[in-house]
């Protein structure tokens, strides 16, 4: 019994079918409690006022936008190395979610930036690299759509994902070189004690966990859809042959 057996499509459909509702309910609970807590039971920031509250959506969605690409990178590698179809379908399923997360991060950032920085958009390194990430997601999705043969599409998009990861990282540090930033430093990291005051930090962690669960639930649902679509396609082909 190895971990790979869970990736067998039939088994995958079995255990994900039971887990999706659990993840979905937990995600809904975490996000709603976190947002209500953050919106109504935390004080206004002394400099930013009420606008600080957008952090409960902005930071989790930005985190997931990056981690979604990371997940796609891992599942693409698994596909290239071990040829598990479910793996590459999960990458395909994650891409639109990552795209939307990137968009949410960009839009909430713009809404926050307008009153705080006095502008919707600046060519700040972080903002710019998010825009570039957005274009990477677009290209990845466009390549999936353009190719008819599913295995060819899976191979090519996986290669693109690997190369894209290298260049996305390069761009991330190249833009630092290109322009000085307006964006504040990291809100969360493992090496420092405290970036955000505890009052804001606790609901933020809750919404972060909620977004992670939401992402997992959505990816599982979309992967299940992809598997069903694949089966339907196989059935139709068989029908036509007969």
């Amino acid at each position: 019994m190895s971990i790979w057996e869970y990736a067998n499509p039939r088994r995958f459909m079995g255990w994900t079918g039971r887990l999706v509702p659990v993840f979905a309910i937990l995600a809904a609970a975490c996000i709603s409690v976190g947002i209500i807590w953050g919106y109504f039971f935390t004080p206004d920031d002394f400099r930013m006022g009420a606008t600080v509250k957008i952090i409960y959506i902005h930071v989790p969605s930005a985190t997931m936008a990056i981690n979604a690409w990371g997940m796609m990178l891992i599942t693409s590698l698994v596909w290239l190395i071990r040829r598990h179809h479910v793996s590459v379908l999960a990458a395909k399923a994650a891409a639109p979610i990552g795209l939307v997360m990137t968009l949410i991060a960009l839009i909430t950032g713009a809404i926050w930036g307008q009153p705080m920085w006095g502008t919707w958009w600046v060519w700040d390194p972080r903002l710019t690299s998010f825009l570039i990430l957005f274009i990477f997601y677009l290209g990845y999705l466009a390549l999936w759509q353009a190719i008819d043969n599913p295995d060819t599409a899976a191979d090519l998009t996986s290669v693109l994902c690997l190369v894209g990861s290298v260049f996305a990282l390069l761009s991330r540090y190249a833009v630092n070189f290109w322009n000085q930033g307006l964006h504040q430093g990291a809100s969360l990291s493992l090496d420092k004690e405290e970036h955000v005051s505890d009052v804001f930090w606790q609901p933020l962690v809750l919404t972060l966990v909620g977004f992670v669960l939401l992402f997992i639930a959505l990816v599982l649902i979309r992967t299940r859809t992809e598997i069903r679509a694949r089966r339907l396609h196989a059935l139709e082909t068989r029908e036509r042959m007969a």
Partner: peptide
């Protein structure tokens, strides 16, 4: 669409 984002670092430097 695929190539332009890959050109970003080259273009910057």
């Amino acid at each position: 669409l695929l190539v332009l984002p890959l050109y970003v670092p080259t273009m910057i430097f």
